[in-house]
Design a protein around this nucleic acid. Sequence first.
DNA 1: ACTTTAAATGCAACAACGTTGCATTTAAAG
DNA 2: CTTTAAATGCAACGTTGTTGCATTTAAAGT
Lengths: 117, 117
Amino acid sequence: MKVLEELTGTGQALSHTELESTFSKVDRITLYRVLKDFEEAGLVHKIIGPDGVTRFAVCRHNCPDETHTEDHVHFNCTNCHKVFCLEHTHNPDLRLPTGFKISGIQILVQGICKHCS
Amino acid sequence: MKVLEELTGTGQALSHTELESTFSKVDRITLYRVLKDFEEAGLVHKIIGPDGVTRFAVCRHNCPDETHTEDHVHFNCTNCHKVFCLEHTHNPDLRLPTGFKISGIQILVQGICKHCS
DNA sequence: ACTTTAAATGCAACAACGTTGCATTTAAAG
DNA sequence: CTTTAAATGCAACGTTGTTGCATTTAAAGT
Ligand SMILES: [Mn+2]
Ligand SMILES: [Mn+2]
Ligand SMILES: [Zn+2]
Ligand SMILES: [Zn+2]
Protein backbone atom coordinates (compact mmCIF):
# COMPACT_ATOMS: atom_id res chain seq x y z
CA MET A 1 0.00 0.00 0.00
CA LYS A 2 2.81 2.38 0.87
CA VAL A 3 4.44 1.58 -2.48
CA LEU A 4 1.22 2.30 -4.33
CA GLU A 5 0.82 5.59 -2.45
CA GLU A 6 4.36 6.57 -3.34
CA LEU A 7 3.77 5.81 -7.01
CA THR A 8 0.47 7.66 -6.98
CA GLY A 9 1.82 10.66 -5.11
CA THR A 10 4.90 11.34 -7.19
CA GLY A 11 4.33 12.78 -10.61
CA GLN A 12 6.86 10.56 -12.28
CA ALA A 13 7.76 6.98 -13.01
CA LEU A 14 10.03 5.44 -10.41
CA SER A 15 12.74 2.87 -10.88
CA HIS A 16 13.19 -0.10 -8.62
CA THR A 17 16.30 1.48 -7.12
CA GLU A 18 14.46 4.69 -6.33
CA LEU A 19 11.66 2.81 -4.61
CA GLU A 20 14.21 0.66 -2.81
CA SER A 21 15.88 3.70 -1.28
CA THR A 22 12.51 5.18 -0.37
CA PHE A 23 11.52 2.03 1.50
CA SER A 24 14.87 1.07 2.87
CA LYS A 25 13.26 -1.24 5.41
CA VAL A 26 11.71 -3.44 2.76
CA ASP A 27 13.67 -6.25 1.19
CA ARG A 28 14.35 -5.76 -2.49
CA ILE A 29 12.83 -9.11 -3.40
CA THR A 30 9.60 -8.21 -1.67
CA LEU A 31 9.60 -5.02 -3.69
CA TYR A 32 10.08 -6.99 -6.89
CA ARG A 33 7.11 -9.17 -5.98
CA VAL A 34 4.92 -6.25 -4.97
CA LEU A 35 5.59 -4.47 -8.25
CA LYS A 36 4.98 -7.63 -10.23
CA ASP A 37 1.66 -8.19 -8.47
CA PHE A 38 0.65 -4.57 -9.07
CA GLU A 39 1.51 -4.90 -12.72
CA GLU A 40 -0.45 -8.13 -13.13
CA ALA A 41 -3.37 -6.58 -11.30
CA GLY A 42 -3.32 -3.67 -13.73
CA LEU A 43 -2.53 -1.08 -11.09
CA VAL A 44 0.84 -0.03 -12.42
CA HIS A 45 2.64 -0.31 -15.74
CA LYS A 46 6.26 -0.72 -16.63
CA ILE A 47 8.21 1.69 -18.81
CA ILE A 48 11.58 0.71 -20.20
CA GLY A 49 13.43 3.82 -21.20
CA PRO A 50 16.02 4.23 -23.95
CA ASP A 51 18.71 3.63 -21.35
CA GLY A 52 17.15 0.27 -20.51
CA VAL A 53 16.14 1.33 -17.02
CA THR A 54 12.79 -0.08 -15.96
CA ARG A 55 10.43 2.31 -14.22
CA PHE A 56 6.96 1.97 -12.81
CA ALA A 57 4.01 4.32 -12.88
CA VAL A 58 0.41 4.07 -11.74
CA CYS A 59 -2.20 3.27 -14.35
CA ARG A 60 -4.67 6.04 -15.04
CA HIS A 61 -8.40 5.91 -15.48
CA ASN A 62 -8.25 4.97 -19.13
CA CYS A 63 -6.27 1.79 -18.64
CA PRO A 64 -8.52 -1.19 -19.45
CA ASP A 65 -8.19 -4.23 -17.25
CA GLU A 66 -8.11 -6.91 -19.94
CA THR A 67 -5.81 -5.58 -22.61
CA HIS A 68 -3.88 -3.40 -20.15
CA THR A 69 -2.83 -1.20 -23.02
CA GLU A 70 -0.96 1.86 -21.91
CA ASP A 71 -1.11 3.85 -25.06
CA HIS A 72 -0.33 7.26 -23.67
CA VAL A 73 2.88 9.08 -24.48
CA HIS A 74 5.90 8.88 -22.21
CA PHE A 75 8.38 11.69 -21.77
CA ASN A 76 12.03 11.15 -20.94
CA CYS A 77 14.01 14.19 -19.84
CA THR A 78 17.52 14.16 -21.27
CA ASN A 79 18.71 16.35 -18.40
CA CYS A 80 17.35 14.80 -15.19
CA HIS A 81 16.55 11.47 -16.86
CA LYS A 82 13.14 11.32 -15.24
CA VAL A 83 10.24 9.66 -17.00
CA PHE A 84 6.75 11.11 -17.02
CA CYS A 85 3.43 9.74 -18.19
CA LEU A 86 1.67 12.27 -20.37
CA GLU A 87 -2.09 12.27 -20.68
CA HIS A 88 -1.68 12.66 -24.40
CA THR A 89 -2.62 9.62 -26.45
CA HIS A 90 -1.71 9.64 -30.08
CA ASN A 91 -2.51 7.34 -32.93
CA PRO A 92 -0.56 8.51 -35.92
CA ASP A 93 -1.47 7.55 -39.44
CA LEU A 94 1.41 5.24 -40.13
CA ARG A 95 1.62 3.62 -43.49
CA LEU A 96 3.43 0.39 -42.79
CA PRO A 97 5.01 -1.94 -45.36
CA THR A 98 2.80 -4.60 -46.87
CA GLY A 99 2.04 -7.48 -44.56
CA PHE A 100 2.64 -5.62 -41.34
CA LYS A 101 -0.45 -5.34 -39.14
CA ILE A 102 -0.36 -2.85 -36.31
CA SER A 103 -1.93 -3.70 -32.97
CA GLY A 104 -0.38 -1.15 -30.66
CA ILE A 105 2.08 1.67 -30.48
CA GLN A 106 4.55 3.01 -27.96
CA ILE A 107 5.69 6.60 -28.14
CA LEU A 108 8.52 7.94 -26.07
CA VAL A 109 9.33 11.60 -26.38
CA GLN A 110 12.73 12.89 -25.37
CA GLY A 111 13.52 16.44 -24.41
CA ILE A 112 13.68 18.83 -21.48
CA CYS A 113 11.06 18.46 -18.78
CA LYS A 114 9.09 21.17 -17.02
CA HIS A 115 11.37 21.22 -13.99
CA CYS A 116 14.61 21.41 -15.98
CA SER A 117 13.63 24.10 -18.45
CA MET B 1 33.55 -7.19 -40.22
CA LYS B 2 31.65 -10.48 -40.13
CA VAL B 3 29.40 -9.04 -37.46
CA LEU B 4 28.69 -5.97 -39.55
CA GLU B 5 27.96 -8.15 -42.57
CA GLU B 6 25.56 -10.25 -40.54
CA LEU B 7 23.75 -7.16 -39.29
CA THR B 8 23.62 -5.71 -42.77
CA GLY B 9 22.51 -8.92 -44.42
CA THR B 10 19.65 -9.83 -42.15
CA GLY B 11 16.56 -7.72 -42.42
CA GLN B 12 16.03 -7.47 -38.70
CA ALA B 13 17.60 -6.26 -35.49
CA LEU B 14 19.66 -8.90 -33.73
CA SER B 15 20.16 -9.42 -30.04
CA HIS B 16 23.50 -10.13 -28.48
CA THR B 17 22.48 -13.73 -27.86
CA GLU B 18 21.50 -14.22 -31.49
CA LEU B 19 24.81 -12.83 -32.68
CA GLU B 20 26.63 -14.91 -30.11
CA SER B 21 25.15 -18.13 -31.43
CA THR B 22 25.89 -17.07 -35.00
CA PHE B 23 29.55 -16.49 -34.19
CA SER B 24 30.04 -19.24 -31.67
CA LYS B 25 33.80 -19.01 -32.06
CA VAL B 26 33.92 -15.44 -30.84
CA ASP B 27 34.06 -14.67 -27.17
CA ARG B 28 31.01 -12.86 -25.84
CA ILE B 29 33.09 -10.03 -24.38
CA THR B 30 34.72 -9.39 -27.74
CA LEU B 31 31.24 -9.21 -29.20
CA TYR B 32 30.19 -6.69 -26.57
CA ARG B 33 33.18 -4.56 -27.44
CA VAL B 34 32.68 -4.85 -31.19
CA LEU B 35 29.07 -3.79 -30.87
CA LYS B 36 29.96 -0.90 -28.58
CA ASP B 37 32.59 0.30 -31.04
CA PHE B 38 30.13 0.05 -33.92
CA GLU B 39 27.59 2.01 -31.98
CA GLU B 40 30.04 4.76 -31.04
CA ALA B 41 31.22 4.90 -34.62
CA GLY B 42 27.64 5.40 -35.77
CA LEU B 43 27.51 2.19 -37.77
CA VAL B 44 24.80 0.46 -35.76
CA HIS B 45 22.14 1.57 -33.32
CA LYS B 46 20.65 -0.08 -30.28
CA ILE B 47 16.96 -0.79 -29.87
CA ILE B 48 15.57 -1.73 -26.49
CA GLY B 49 12.25 -3.45 -26.98
CA PRO B 50 9.26 -3.47 -24.65
CA ASP B 51 10.58 -6.71 -23.21
CA GLY B 52 13.84 -5.02 -22.29
CA VAL B 53 15.87 -7.03 -24.78
CA THR B 54 18.59 -5.02 -26.46
CA ARG B 55 18.96 -5.50 -30.18
CA PHE B 56 21.28 -4.04 -32.78
CA ALA B 57 20.65 -2.89 -36.32
CA VAL B 58 22.73 -1.19 -38.97
CA CYS B 59 22.31 2.53 -39.43
CA ARG B 60 20.84 3.60 -42.73
CA HIS B 61 21.82 6.37 -45.03
CA ASN B 62 19.90 9.04 -43.16
CA CYS B 63 21.67 8.59 -39.85
CA PRO B 64 23.79 11.66 -39.16
CA ASP B 65 27.18 11.09 -37.61
CA GLU B 66 27.06 13.77 -34.92
CA THR B 67 23.61 13.55 -33.42
CA HIS B 68 23.24 9.87 -34.32
CA THR B 69 19.49 10.27 -34.19
CA GLU B 70 17.66 7.20 -35.24
CA ASP B 71 14.23 8.64 -35.68
CA HIS B 72 12.72 5.96 -37.86
CA VAL B 73 9.93 3.70 -36.64
CA HIS B 74 10.63 0.29 -35.17
CA PHE B 75 8.30 -2.65 -35.46
CA ASN B 76 8.07 -5.40 -32.85
CA CYS B 77 6.20 -8.56 -33.88
CA THR B 78 4.11 -9.91 -31.02
CA ASN B 79 4.28 -13.37 -32.55
CA CYS B 80 7.93 -14.01 -33.46
CA HIS B 81 9.21 -11.15 -31.27
CA LYS B 82 11.50 -9.94 -34.00
CA VAL B 83 12.31 -6.26 -34.32
CA PHE B 84 12.48 -4.49 -37.67
CA CYS B 85 13.64 -1.04 -38.65
CA LEU B 86 11.05 0.62 -40.83
CA GLU B 87 12.05 3.30 -43.30
CA HIS B 88 9.10 5.33 -42.13
CA THR B 89 9.98 8.41 -40.11
CA HIS B 90 7.18 10.21 -38.39
CA ASN B 91 7.04 13.47 -36.54
CA PRO B 92 3.58 13.73 -35.06
CA ASP B 93 2.09 17.01 -33.94
CA LEU B 94 2.21 16.41 -30.22
CA ARG B 95 0.90 19.09 -27.97
CA LEU B 96 2.94 18.62 -24.81
CA PRO B 97 2.19 20.14 -21.40
CA THR B 98 3.64 23.58 -20.69
CA GLY B 99 7.36 23.61 -20.02
CA PHE B 100 8.14 20.39 -21.86
CA LYS B 101 10.45 20.86 -24.85
CA ILE B 102 10.73 18.00 -27.31
CA SER B 103 14.05 17.14 -28.88
CA GLY B 104 13.45 13.66 -30.21
CA ILE B 105 10.93 10.89 -30.43
CA GLN B 106 10.98 7.10 -30.42
CA ILE B 107 8.14 5.19 -31.95
CA LEU B 108 7.77 1.46 -31.55
CA VAL B 109 4.90 -0.21 -33.31
CA GLN B 110 3.67 -3.58 -32.16
CA GLY B 111 1.76 -6.04 -34.28
CA ILE B 112 2.16 -8.95 -36.66
CA CYS B 113 5.08 -8.87 -39.04
CA LYS B 114 5.16 -9.74 -42.72
CA HIS B 115 6.48 -13.24 -42.14
CA CYS B 116 3.94 -14.14 -39.45
CA SER B 117 0.79 -12.88 -41.15
C1' DA C 1 -8.90 -16.49 23.47
C1' DC C 2 -6.84 -20.30 21.08
C1' DT C 3 -6.01 -22.88 16.96
C1' DT C 4 -5.67 -23.44 12.08
C1' DT C 5 -4.52 -21.73 7.60
C1' DA C 6 -2.96 -18.80 4.22
C1' DA C 7 -0.51 -14.75 2.79
C1' DA C 8 3.52 -11.84 3.12
C1' DT C 9 8.27 -11.33 4.07
C1' DG C 10 13.27 -12.31 4.27
C1' DC C 11 17.25 -14.95 3.02
C1' DA C 12 20.11 -17.76 -0.04
C1' DA C 13 21.06 -19.11 -4.36
C1' DC C 14 21.04 -18.68 -9.04
C1' DA C 15 20.85 -16.85 -13.96
C1' DA C 16 21.22 -13.23 -17.56
C1' DC C 17 23.34 -9.16 -18.97
C1' DG C 18 27.04 -6.04 -19.14
C1' DT C 19 31.62 -3.84 -17.76
C1' DT C 20 36.58 -3.61 -16.51
C1' DG C 21 41.46 -5.14 -15.74
C1' DC C 22 45.04 -7.82 -17.34
C1' DA C 23 47.62 -11.14 -19.97
C1' DT C 24 48.15 -13.06 -24.52
C1' DT C 25 47.66 -13.29 -29.29
C1' DT C 26 47.48 -11.18 -33.73
C1' DA C 27 48.40 -7.93 -37.01
C1' DA C 28 50.35 -3.67 -38.59
C1' DA C 29 54.61 -0.57 -39.13
C1' DG C 30 59.19 0.40 -39.23
C1' DC D 1 63.16 -9.34 -38.39
C1' DT D 2 61.92 -6.21 -34.75
C1' DT D 3 58.96 -3.04 -32.55
C1' DT D 4 54.47 -1.43 -31.40
C1' DA D 5 49.74 -1.20 -31.17
C1' DA D 6 45.32 -3.28 -31.71
C1' DA D 7 42.30 -7.18 -31.00
C1' DT D 8 41.07 -11.13 -28.39
C1' DG D 9 40.27 -14.21 -24.40
C1' DC D 10 39.87 -15.02 -19.55
C1' DA D 11 38.72 -13.87 -14.81
C1' DA D 12 36.38 -11.20 -11.89
C1' DC D 13 32.90 -8.16 -10.60
C1' DG D 14 28.39 -5.42 -10.50
C1' DT D 15 23.53 -4.94 -11.54
C1' DT D 16 19.04 -6.67 -12.39
C1' DG D 17 15.65 -10.02 -11.85
C1' DT D 18 13.80 -14.76 -10.62
C1' DT D 19 12.92 -18.95 -7.76
C1' DG D 20 12.91 -22.12 -3.64
C1' DC D 21 12.40 -22.45 1.08
C1' DA D 22 11.92 -21.19 5.88
C1' DT D 23 9.90 -17.86 8.93
C1' DT D 24 6.95 -14.31 10.26
C1' DT D 25 2.59 -12.03 10.12
C1' DA D 26 -2.08 -11.65 9.58
C1' DA D 27 -6.61 -13.48 8.70
C1' DA D 28 -10.41 -16.98 9.74
C1' DG D 29 -12.60 -20.50 12.16
C1' DT D 30 -13.74 -22.72 16.55
MN1 LIG E 1 2.71 5.63 -18.37
MN1 LIG F 1 16.40 1.07 -36.39
ZN1 LIG G 1 14.20 17.02 -16.28
ZN1 LIG H 1 6.70 -12.05 -36.72
